[in-house]
Computed example of a mutant assay.
Amino acid sequence: MSSNKTVKNTEILKKLASDHGFSFCGVSKAEFLESEAGRLEEWLKRGYQGKMSYLENHFDKRLDPTLLVPGAKSVVSLIYNYFPPEDNHQRTDSYKIARYAYGKDYHYVVKDKLRELVHDLKKEVGDVDGRVFVDSAPVMERSWAEKSGIGWVGKNSLLLNRSMGSYFFLAELIIDLELIPDAPTKDYCGTCTACMDACPTDAIPESGVVDGSKCISYLTIELKDDIPAEFSNKMNDWIFGCDICQEVCPWNRFSTPHNEKDFLPNDFIQNATRQEWQEMTKEIFNEVFRKSPVKRTKYSGLKRNIEFIKKDQ
């Protein structure tokens, strides 16, 4: 039996999450992710991590939240919308960057909101110990989100939500507060294989499994070497990240524009032509992408990506 206090604390948390701009909030019990251990091991064994060797580290911590936060009782999964009010992917005179990278780096924006949420939670329920995470530690965020019922893992391995598709960031609180766990939802992908069929590099070999070493996002961001020649004429103008498997997903017809000013694109991202991208200097790159996720690929990486695509034109 759940105590009245646990029920009340769960209600307070979910109300605060909504007040701070999170679209969904789900709760899981902090325990070892038994079902994920074998899947993660197999994925790594196949070499799908490519050169992302950091994914081989902290295997136990990825599966056991109490190793990240001793005494943890709950994993709280949250969704924060980033679907842009308008985007330039219909333009044929420009290159494409993933929609999540249009504005300010989400690590900072969403983490600030999480900290404010925890601050307000403490005011309401007393001292809470734990950590906040936004795609920045060995946390199996999609597994926890699925477990908490805020969506299911689609065939493209992204979390899908019936009300808003997949254009959102996932964030977590791992805390020592006892909360009422939510039940998982069902998988609503059915027989649809739109994402698998549309991927130009065949990076989705089976349902829910992405071969990271073939994914355009990996090739344009994580890979530090030259892009292998086998991907010529397959990049579809993506110079940072890729949204193809999201663009074709039927659930994304339910995406609604965010109202987060920090995620709005600057003038360069909104209006630059291919030529302006090609002529971009390091100074312009540093200015345009000063607080952007695109910084991650560095000026040299972005130029490499542009040159690789230019050869195909």
Rank of each mutant, 00 (worst) to 15 (best):
A272T: 02
D187N: 14
Y188H: 14
C242Q: 01
T185P: 01
N286C: 08
A203Y: 12
F254I: 02
Q278V: 03
D197S: 13
T281Y: 04
I269N: 09
D237E: 07
Q278K: 09
T220Q: 06
Y188V: 10
P265N: 12
N233D: 08
D197A: 14
A194V: 13
V288Y: 01
M280D: 02
D202G: 08
N252S: 12
P265T: 13
F289Y: 15
E230T: 05
P200F: 15
L223C: 00
W251N: 11
I244Y: 01
T297N: 06
I284M: 00
S213L: 10
K186Q: 09
C249P: 02
W238Y: 01
T193Q: 14
K224M: 02
D187S: 08
E276M: 14
Q246P: 06
Q270L: 14
Q246L: 14
G212N: 08
D202T: 05
I244R: 01
C199Q: 05
H258C: 11
S292R: 09
K224R: 08
T256K: 02
D237N: 09
M196A: 09
D237P: 01
M196W: 07
N286A: 11
T201R: 12
C245D: 06
P293G: 10
Y299G: 02
L219S: 02
T281S: 15
A194E: 14
F268A: 10
S207M: 02
K291C: 03
D182N: 14
W251C: 10
D182S: 10
V248L: 11
K186E: 15
V288E: 05
W238D: 01
E206Y: 05
C249H: 04
C245M: 11
N233L: 09
V288G: 05
V248W: 10
A229Q: 12
K282T: 00
D237W: 06
P205Q: 15
I204S: 11
D262A: 15
D182M: 13
L264E: 15
V210M: 14
G301P: 01
T191S: 15
C195G: 09
T185Y: 01
S207W: 07
T191V: 15
Y299P: 03
S232F: 02
I269H: 10
T191F: 03
M235N: 00
C199I: 07
C249D: 03
